[in-house]
């Protein structure tokens, strides 16, 4: 099961190390974007959006269509984010907002229903076959060579985008007026609405923001992964693992955990290819046993 030789060979060769680290980073960044959306929505609205993977999928498909029609990747990425945000707001207003404060069972069921419907709709609109977008024209440049390893420019763009968007959403929530109102409403919604603020609008907007993060992740993933109905589930489960390891409600924690998981995945695929999933779950179980609040969690939410 363990391929020590391959692992040692990779760790001692700078080229392989660079390749695996960049792969790990882009996996980690996608996870981070999805997980920070989950954690943002949970932190404020106290619902777990089990349908979050669907917004990742929608973002990817919207970006695909926008790229095919316009040929511009930046437009495509924006379309992915915006489309996911709009779908998220509709989902929040029509469905999820009706089960706020109810037990988890109801939230789970409506999310399950939503996943079924969206997966089937995607199948009807885009077909059940694998779609692939390919590296967009803007990024068809020769890869950078760093210490013998190859780093495609698109990977750098992905990492930079993820970091900027992650920092941006952290800034929105902690520093802006919008973030302050939303956080206040999370503590005491009736008090905030008594101050003349339409709390529902803010909740919907925040839900949309969380879904936009998933949509961007989908749009960023579209060129490097194949698109298929049901693609959201894998990343949803991994982003749950990220939130558990990083600590629920902590965006920096999600960042740290996402990088740990991404590197585990990429280096593990060399050293223990059959045990990559197992390793992720082992890390999660260890965190749960020894530090149940997560690496950077505040520990009050559980």
């Amino acid at each position: 099961m363990l391929e020590i030789d391959a692992l040692a060979a990779c760790l001692s060769s700078p080229a392989c190390l660079v390749n695996q680290t960049t792969t790990g980073l882009i996996i980690g960044m996608l996870l981070f974007l999805v997980a920070s959306g989950v954690t943002l929505i949970f932190g404020v609205l106290h619902v777990i959006n089990f349908a979050h993977g669907s917004f990742y999928m929608l973002g990817a498909y919207f970006a695909y269509t926008a790229y095919i029609t316009t040929g511009n990747y930046f437009v495509a990425a924006a379309a992915g984010a915006l489309g996911a945000a709009i779908c998220g707001i509709v989902f929040e207003r029509l469905i999820i907002s009706r089960v706020y404060g109810q037990n988890v069972l109801m939230q789970l069921l409506v999310c399950y229903a939503f996943i079924l419907i969206v997966d089937d709709l995607v199948k009807i609109i885009w077909g059940a076959e694998y779609l692939s977008m390919g590296i967009p024209a803007e990024f068809r440049l020769p890869p950078y060579r760093i210490a013998g390893g190859f780093v495609p420019p698109f990977y750098l763009f992905m990492v930079a985008m993820a970091v900027i968007i992650g920092l941006g959403s952290l800034w929105i929530v902690t520093r802006t007026r919008f973030g302050k109102i939303v956080r206040a409403a999370a503590h005491n919604a009736s008090m905030v609405s008594a101050l003349g603020i339409r709390v529902q609008l803010y909740f919907a907007a925040l839900f949309g923001l969380g879904c936009a993060l998933a949509g961007v992740a989908g749009a960023l993933a579209a060129p490097v992964r194949s698109l298929t109905p049901g693609m959201g589930l894998g990343i949803l489960v991994e982003s749950f693992i990220v939130t558990v390891i990083g600590g629920m409600g902590s965006i920096p924690g999600a960042f740290l955990a996402a990088i740990i998981l991404g590197l585990t995945r990429s280096i593990g695929s060399v050293g223990f290819p059959l045990f990559v999933d197992g390793a992720m779950f082992m890390i999660m179980a260890l965190v749960l046993i020894f530090r149940p609040t997560g690496l950077l969690g505040q520990g009050t939410l559980r």
């Binding site: 469905i95 399950y112 939503f114 079924l116 419907i117 997966d119 089937d120």
Partner: peptide, 11 residues
């Protein structure tokens, strides 16, 4: 497309 119908029934 059974899933759409089942999803709608769940909702």
């Amino acid at each position: 497309h059974t899933e759409i119908v089942i999803g709608a029934v769940i909702l």
